[in-house]
Design a protein around this nucleic acid. Structure first.
Length: 111
DNA sequence: GACATGACGGCAG
DNA sequence: CCTGCCGCCATGT
């Protein structure tokens, strides 16, 4: 066991798994919810390892602009958009349309 | 041990 | 409005 438990990553995966279908959240919101407010990069890093975790819909996690910044890390660059559109989320130019309406804040929804 | 990078975010110019 | 820089924590070289 290292000083830095993977608890942080586990928490990230836990929250991501709670994201309801047809919704999306941002790295910053997750980071803030976990208490590491401002360290959205860590959430992104966790997502990088998310591929090793089952049932982790990383495609529902986008940046605060609703832009699919991590699409390039999926099996295929189009996988993320395909999955989101399959859930009823409209995407235009790699960006979620009406993102503010589908955004899912753990600190609010899970409150 | 130090430097550079990364699926981000906020603030300053 | 758009561009650029810094801060955040962890990992890799």
């Amino acid at each position: 066991m290292k000083s830095t438990d993977t608890n942080f990553f586990e928490d990230v995966y836990q929250v991501v798994r709670l994201i309801p279908k047809g919704r999306a959240t941002s790295y910053g919101l997750i980071a803030e919810y976990l208490g590491s407010k401002g360290s959205a990069r860590m959430v992104g890093w966790a997502m990088n390892q998310a591929h090793a975790m089952p049932d982790v819909p990383a495609h529902r996690v986008v940046n605060r602009n609703g832009l699919l910044t991590g699409k390039n890390h999926f099996q295929t660059p189009t996988q993320m958009q395909e999955l989101l559109e399959s859930e009823g989320i409209s995407i235009k130019n790699d960006q979620i349309m009406n993102f503010e309406s589908i955004i899912w804040s753990p600190k609010i929804e899970l409150l």
